[in-house]
Design a binder for these strands. Structure first.
Lengths: 202, 202
DNA sequence: CATCATACGAGACTACAGTTTCGAAACTAC
DNA sequence: GTAGTTTCGAAACTGTAGTCTCGTATGATG
């Protein structure tokens, strides 16, 4: 009998986990999201498919885990000004989304999410919430500095900033390099203006 | 020999086209994008699958065509003010994207587009360009009215406006109803502010 | 050391959905 | 009418996600 929650039986080989993650990333880069097959991942990792399905319920969860692994968007350090912070933030987001493999995976993931509430939940806690919190911190800094009179609508700002990058890259297909400064300038002007007249009808 | 571009052979049955479109829309509403199968579409439409593939190269193109069919985003009429125009525009976009079937289709389509340049091209000419042109017209109106001193960065505005809606609905999963007025106020403030100091370093 | 529970790689197997092929039918040109 | 071309629905083909079984390996328990 096992004691406590102590593991009984053969323990999992952590090298298998690493091999799966590495194989998914390698193959995403080579054949893209659409061309990725579970069998190919198993072969590339030198393992059996069963070892994959023992860890992940579906192919999508496997990819999600591999892409996400440690990919938290850290808040860029304080640059001393709102404009500087916004530019740095835009660069970080653009940097992450400019990787073609990650980009394809993300978009396909969004497609899946539209039809899978479980995946949507996980995506939210893993990506959306931390990023929103990071945005909030950045804006609070600006308030502390006195650059903004009051905290703006964080939900709206968050959707605006990330959404603009998404649309710029994947819908308009514009040059990633052009975006950060333009977006930061625009957002900075908007925030300053909105802070003065948050509710025009008041 | 055929004369001119005159059609030779058995002509297509236009009722088949209509039946496909109707079946796709009906099934999208019933089973969602993920649950949609070509076989089900064929059966629901009372036709063979070959008749579908003679018209569309892939399942995604079929859905794209069915969802898009006549779904051009018209520019909302002049409301007399920039804020009013922006609110109306946001409502139109939110309205289109709030339909769950269309939403799922769009997101999955974006996933496909990330890996299919041909589809990307078609998506751009069908959706992106007209919408950008609509945005431009709306902004020109504001300049003519004197609400804006000069025309803002249209590419950026376009990515910002549509991207915010996209992110608000499909990434943050916020309430569609809350968005239009908030976004319009924010964008209006941003545009007025940016028009005064388009290049802060000048 | 013996037992038990689990993980492992390999590969067969099932189910299902996208895509293609096929014979019959419909229509035009001559 | 006949030939040629294209569409039609039905059925076959192809490939992949996901499951299952097998024999083996690994570690904990006693």
């Amino acid at each position: 009998m096992e004691h406590n929650g102590q593991q009984v039986g053969r323990p999992r080989d952590s090298r298998v986990d690493e091999a799966i993650t590495a194989a998914v990333r390698k193959l995403l880069g080579e054949v893209g999201y659409a061309g990725l097959t579970v069998a190919a991942v198993a072969e590339c990792a030198g393992i059996g498919k069963a070892s994959i399905y023992r860890r992940y319920a579906t192919k999508h969860e496997m990819i999600f885990a591999a892409v996400v692994h440690g990919e938290v968007l850290e808040v860029p350090p304080d640059t001393g000004s709102l404009l500087g912070d916004l530019t740095a933030l835009a660069r970080v987001i653009v940097g992450h989304l400019s990787n073609p493999a990650a980009a394809g995976a993300l978009m396909s993931l969004l497609g899946e999410i539209a039809a899978d509430p479980t995946l949507a939940e996980r995506f939210t806690t893993t990506f959306v919430e931390p990023e929103r919190a990071g945005n909030a911190e950045l804006l609070e800094r600006a308030v502390r500095r006195g650059e903004l009179e009051r905290l703006p609508d964080i939900d709206l700002f968050h959707a605006m900033f990330g959404g603009t990058v998404l649309s710029w890259l994947f819908i308009s297909h514009h040059d990633p390099h052009d975006l950060p400064e333009r977006l930061a300038r625009f957002a900075c002007a908007a925030l300053r203006s909105a802070a003065h007249q948050p509710f025009p009808s008041d």
